[in-house]
Every structure is written in structure tokens, then in C-alpha cells.
Amino acid sequence: MKKLFGTAAASLLLVTAAGCGNSSSGATDEDGNWTPTQPIEITAPAGPGGGWDTTARMVSQVFEEEEIIDQRLPVVNKAGGGGAIGWAYIAGQEESPHHMFVGSPPLILVPLNGQSEYSHEDFTPLANVIADYGAFVVKADAEWDNLNDLFDDMKEDPQSVSIVGTSSPGSMDHMQFVKIAKAAGVDVTNLKYISDPESGGLTSVLNGSVDVFTTGVAETIEQVRAGKVKVLGITAEERLEGEVLSDFPTAIEQGIDETFINWRGFFGPPGMDEAAVTYYEEKFKELNDSEAWIEIREKYGWGEMYMDSEEYAAFLEEEAESMQALLDELGLARE
């Protein structure tokens, strides 16, 4: 018995040693055009089923089925730390052109909240593909009819209005409200914000426990159609297209010159080769224009927002600066 056990243990060690080889870096021809030579791993920094996971799986599906990319693109879930675990994983794949992940505003906010070592600056932006917007919702019979009504009350006493969002202070639901409210002149350091991670925000507004629900535009449509709630304002640049959607007034048209974009795009590991970046930029452009992708975008109600690597990097820099300033003011920026 002992002997057999020893043999098994030894073979285990052998296998370990063999496991330490590494992968190739793709093929580059004389003109400097890069092509992938092995499956491209897309990381969703969350478990199956959420927004990041869905985006990653849809992109993978269109790339494969429309034969835009001639390789498999398996989706790998790395959940935890609000994304931090997945980001740390990609940061460990330095220079690999066969890895990418899907990112959105938490990639800026989580590091600023002191909860991730890595931020957008550590990665190589490839392309942005989707944009969503925030909406501020109150019960249909609430006393406010537009954002200015609401903010006027809040300017008098910020504590007189309670606000609920799904995520904690310093994260997206909170910050989109803070950003708009601050532009309207509300003292945002003194908001009565509660977070309901069990997605009870809408319920709390419907039963009158809380006054305002800060959420994504798509989540509100059906309740508005049924006349249960009204949308005081959305965070988009201009009115959105679509039935009901086009009725939602923007903050800008109410005289509050501020927007909040829930962008979603793809990033490579740190130091990804220029040739590979160019390759992915082109492929994402092709994806963005494909019939199949347009259909998927409509199905999920995602807005279009394509940016190439360079535009994306500049955009992220701006976003990060404005978030940093707001978080500093709120006392939420942590090391």
C-alpha cells in the first residue's frame, strides 16, 4: 500500500513540473499585422448571470458565430471583490494578447474606494461597445414632477428626501445621483442614501418607505407604462429612442448640465502589444456594425457607444478625474 501511495505522490510531482510551460504570443506577419493563434479567453469578473457575464457571453457568441474572429473565445468567470479578483487575474497575464475582460464604471469606482489594487490605468483599453444611463424614479403620486422640484426641496434640507440604490455608497447607483444632484447645487455630503443589495429598491419606492430610487433606465420602463412610478430625469446626453423611453426627460434639458454614462467595453492585460490592440479594435468595430450584434443590443436594450482604444483611454481619464473629485468631496475616497 505504502509503495503504491508513494508512486502516486511522485507522479503528482512530475505532473506539477510539466504544468509550468507557457503559452505562445500569437503570430505577427512582416507588415506587423497580428493574428491570434490560440483561443482568446474573455474574463467576466463576476459569476454567471450578471451584466458583465451576459455582455462577455454575447460578444463571444457573435465573434464566433459570425466568424469575425477565427478562434474560440471561451468565457471565464472570476467572481469576487466587486470585480477586483477578476482584474487581479488579468493583471497577472501581462502582455498576453489572448486575454481580455469586460469592464464598466466599477473599474474606476472600486479602486477609488480603495477596494482594488488595479484600476483602468493598469489595463489596455481595446474598445467600448455599450452605453446605459441612470434614471431617478419616484412613486407616481409623489409631490415632485421633475428634477428641479426634487432638488429644490433637497437644497433646503438634503435630509428630507431618502434615496435608495442597489449598491453601497461610492458605487454606481449612488454616484450617478450625487453627480447630477451636485450639478444642481444640492449639498451632496449630507444625503440620506440607503442601499438595498437584495434589489428591494423599487419595492421600497412603491410602498413609500423611500422617496427616490436611483437605477438603470431599462429597469423603470414597465413600471412607468403601468403608471406606478414616474421618472424625474435620466442621465443621458439627449433623449433616448423608443416607446416610453423617449418620454424620459434628461437632466440637461431641465437645466442641469451633467450626465452619467454606464459604459461597457473590453480591456486587455497590461502592456498588450500595439499590433494586437489594432487587431481587436478592428474586430470590435466589425462586431459593432454586425446585424447579429445590433439584434442582441436591441434585445437587451443596450445603447450603442463605440470608442476605439485611444478615444476610450481619454474618455476613461476624464471619467476617473470627475469621480475622484466627487469621492474626495464625499469623504469616500480611500487608500
Binding site: 469576487g80 477586483a84 479578483i85 477596494q115 482594488s116 453601497s168 442601499s195
Partner: peptide
């Protein structure tokens, strides 16, 4: 912590944040 965003008892380990 959902209400404040403070990380509690995580010892700086991102694996414990959620």
C-alpha cells in the same frame, strides 16, 4: 458593508470584499 461601503474584517484581502 452595504450602507457605508466600509470594508469590515477583510484584512485588505479582496477575496473577502463580497
Amino acid at each position: 458593508d452595504a450602507q457605508t461601503g466600509t470594508s469590515r474584517f477583510t484584512f485588505g484581502n479582496p477575496n473577502l470584499l463580497e
